[in-house]
């Protein structure tokens, strides 16, 4: 095959029958040094992230930074409003009754953390995504039911349309196919 054809291929898709098979296959794909690949399963498999060699998620940093900024922001918002912009006497407290401002600060931190967690998770997963090339595969429909898959993208520098398919077959895949873009 020439490189022109390569561009039309999304990647190779291998089907596995059981959890241990796909788990150990992941370990071997990881050790082979592939970068752009993924495993697909109808349910979470414990320890699969290690078998795939996935790094720790960046989500916690996104959530932590967002909630710190909004927490301090919420606190300062009250400092400015009640302390400088629109001074109100509330229950005889001083205009800069800082202790009470921890509450809006805390609430802003919690709310922004929750939103950052949801939005950040969707963004890191590239969701929402209405179409994916793997949907072309007839076999892939069983991924939400009872089958396990590994897909290796053609854009991976180590990808080879023949060798990669053979490699996946050696790993114990029941079926390997090349999926078009």
């Amino acid at each position: 095959m020439n490189s022109n054809n390569n561009k039309m291929i999304y990647g190779a898709l291998a089907q596995f029958a059981t959890v241990p098979e796909v788990y150990h296959a992941c370990e071997k794909v990881r050790d082979k040094g592939f970068r752009k690949w993924d495993a697909h399963s109808p349910f979470p498999i414990h320890g699969l992230d290690k078998a795939m060699g996935l790094p720790q998620s960046k989500l916690s940093w996104i959530v932590g930074a967002t909630s710190a900024i909004f927490g301090i922001g919420g606190f300062l918002l009250w400092v400015w409003m009640n302390g400088f912009d629109y001074k109100l006497v509330i229950a005889g407290k001083p205009f800069l009754g800082l202790l009470g401002y921890f509450l809006p600060g805390f609430e802003c931190a919690v709310l922004s953390a929750a939103i950052a967690c949801l939005v950040g998770m969707l963004a890191l997963n590239k969701l929402p995504q209405w179409y994916h090339s793997l949907f072309r595969s007839e076999a892939f429909k069983r991924v939400t039911d009872d089958s396990f898959f590994i897909s290796i993208e053609a854009t991976d520098p180590k990808f080879h349309p023949v060798k990669t398919v053979e490699f996946l077959k050696e790993l114990g895949a029941t079926q390997v196919e090349l999926v078009e873009q």
Binding site: A91, G92, L99, G100, F102, L103
Partner: peptide
């Protein structure tokens, strides 16, 4: 601890 302190501070 903060709940306890805040309510007492606020109630005065």
């Amino acid at each position: 601890a903060f709940c306890q302190y805040l309510l007492i501070w606020y109630g005065n």
